[in-house]
Amino acid sequence: MTSSRRWWDGDLRRRAGVLRNVFPAPLGDTPEAVSALALSPDGHTLAVGGDAGTIQLWDTTTQQPLGGPLPSPGEPIASFAFSPDSTTLYAAGTHVALHRNTINPTRLIGHVCARAGNENLTRSEWDTYVPDAPYRRVCDW
């Protein structure tokens, strides 16, 4: 079963996009329901929270997920808030204190490069792991 969610502009006058398979479910199971949404101040990222505690970020331009799910409080997401600079996402549940996720591409690239031994991906590896983006060398500091 697949699920898609439509999202609209701020005035609800035009559909801004469709997110397909927001929270995919194993065959025969019911997909997780959306329980919270937040658009980053820069308008580039949509945070989607689920009733099973999943947090997924979406690129509003490509309407594609940004990586895998983020760590979460582990219960239904009740609300989100982005920091003014769009680099931090706060999530809250009914029974869980505020949970903070740093969303900083430069910091993420540093972690990925450190894990890869500060070696760039080959073009073949890039095509396998980052197929939707043009090849570039990201670990050259």
Rank of each mutant, 00 (worst) to 15 (best):
4 S>F: 09
5 R>H: 09
7 W>G: 03
9 D>R: 08
11 D>K: 01
11 D>T: 06
12 L>H: 06
14 R>P: 02
14 R>Q: 11
18 V>F: 08
19 L>V: 03
20 R>P: 02
22 V>I: 14
22 V>G: 05
22 V>S: 06
23 F>W: 07
28 G>T: 01
29 D>Q: 15
29 D>M: 12
30 T>G: 01
33 A>Q: 13
33 A>P: 05
34 V>G: 04
34 V>M: 01
35 S>I: 12
35 S>E: 06
35 S>F: 10
38 A>V: 02
41 P>N: 00
42 D>N: 15
46 L>C: 09
47 A>Q: 07
48 V>P: 06
51 D>Y: 05
51 D>F: 07
51 D>R: 11
52 A>N: 04
53 G>D: 06
54 T>F: 03
54 T>V: 05
59 D>E: 06
61 T>N: 08
63 Q>N: 09
63 Q>R: 15
66 L>N: 08
66 L>F: 01
68 G>S: 15
71 P>A: 14
73 P>R: 07
75 E>R: 14
76 P>R: 06
78 A>P: 00
79 S>Y: 08
82 F>H: 05
82 F>S: 04
88 T>M: 01
89 L>R: 02
90 Y>T: 13
93 G>F: 13
95 H>E: 10
96 V>N: 12
101 N>P: 03
102 T>K: 07
102 T>I: 13
102 T>N: 07
103 I>T: 02
104 N>Q: 11
107 R>D: 11
107 R>V: 10
107 R>N: 10
109 I>V: 15
109 I>G: 01
112 V>S: 12
114 A>R: 12
115 R>A: 15
119 E>K: 15
119 E>I: 11
119 E>Y: 10
119 E>D: 07
121 L>C: 09
122 T>N: 05
124 S>Q: 14
126 W>R: 03
126 W>H: 08
127 D>T: 10
128 T>H: 08
132 D>F: 03
132 D>A: 11
133 A>D: 14
133 A>R: 14
135 Y>K: 13
135 Y>I: 10
136 R>M: 12
136 R>F: 04
139 C>Q: 11
141 W>H: 12
141 W>P: 01
141 W>S: 09
